[in-house]
């Protein structure tokens, strides 16, 4: 901060109410409104009764707060034949999420470690193609994967979807771990080899304990990504085990019956809740995760 005083730029403004500050904070305030308003609208809508919604203003706070829409969205809203609400989708998503996150992170961390410390002939080529794969539109690979899963007897099952998530999460996660492990001094790895530790010994005893923060980042990345997935869920599962996003879309965009906007908004909020909570809880780590994944990509 000392640097700023090298060039006196007139008297230092004492008040925060300078023209510059009013402009700056004014602009930021308007921007903040644009980003936060939709969330606000969703929350107030989900707490209103249908008559109030039809008559009132979407921005107005509810005159009479009701949690009925939330209850209905969770437990009785209909999608096609099922009328047990989003709860089914929620538990489906949880069941898909946990194995997908665990499996994809294990595989990617071992990949990253092997790519940095145990390079073998062709390992760099495989990694390059893997990264390139991150940019291939999913649509190109979707149908052959349907055939593969059918051959393996996993089409329409939870494990089929877990496998798909693991495969498509691999490029970005492998990159994340590779970058992390290559920042670990190579001499540490050499020291461990002299100490007689092998591939798995070094991974578990040396690298894993050092990489805890990056595991958290990877977890945040994967939980958000898999929870929010729609495309793979709709293709590779069947209605019974649809993840939450697919079920949400079916509830809200179903053409039958009268549109219950409050229930729809409650359902939408419920679906967004998991990543939102994760986002606000993890804060800086979330930012670090997307920045690490993106900048070095």
């Amino acid at each position: 901060m000392v640097n700023n005083h090298i060039v006196p730029n007139g008297p230092k403004p004492k008040s925060i109410f300078t023209a510059r500050n009013i402009m700056l904070y004014g602009t930021l305030f308007v921007v903040a409104i644009y980003y936060i308003l939709p969330l606000y609208v969703m929350i107030v809508t989900s707490l209103k009764g249908m008559p109030e919604i039809r008559l009132g203003n979407i921005f107005a706070p509810p005159l009479e707060v009701t949690f009925q829409p939330w209850v209905k969205a969770w437990s009785t809203a209909c999608t096609g034949l099922n009328c047990d609400g989003l709860s089914r989708g929620f538990w489906n998503s949880v069941q898909i999420l946990i194995p997908s996150v665990v499996l994809s992170i294990i595989i990617a961390s071992v990949n990253g470690y092997a790519l940095v410390n145990w390079k073998f002939k062709g390992s760099e080529v495989f990694f390059a193609v893997l990264l390139f794969g991150a940019f291939i539109p999913y649509q190109v690979m979707i149908y052959p994967i349907v055939i593969l899963l059918r051959e393996m007897g996993l089409m329409g099952s939870l494990w089929g979807l877990v496998l798909v998530h693991t495969v498509f999460g691999m490029p970005i996660l492998t990159l994340l771990f590779r970058n992390y492990f290559s920042s670990v001094p190579e001499e540490l790895f050499k020291a461990a080899r002299i100490d007689g530790a092998g591939f798995w010994g070094i991974y578990f005893r040396i690298m894993l304990p050092m990489a805890v923060p990056i595991f958290v980042v990877a977890m945040i990345l994967q939980v958000t990504g898999i929870w929010n997935d729609f495309l793979f869920g709709v293709i590779y599962t069947k209605p019974d085990i649809y993840p939450m996003t697919v079920q949400l879309n079916n509830i809200v965009n179903s053409v039958q019956g009268v549109k219950e906007y409050n229930v729809n908004m409650a359902a939408t909020l419920l679906t967004g809740l998991v990543p939102l909570v994760l986002y606000f809880v993890s804060g800086k780590l979330f930012v670090r995760g997307i920045a690490a994944g993106a900048v070095k990509g």
Partner: peptide, 28 residues
């Protein structure tokens, strides 16, 4: 490397950060 009957000391020390000094000495 571990079978060659050598010990090695590195420029950056390369101590295992999550282990105590004792852990570092006994790992090998």
């Amino acid at each position: 490397p571990s079978e060659r009957g050598i010990g090695m000391v590195f420029q950056s020390y390369a101590l295992y950060p999550q282990m105590t000094v004792e852990g570092n000495l006994t790992f090998g």
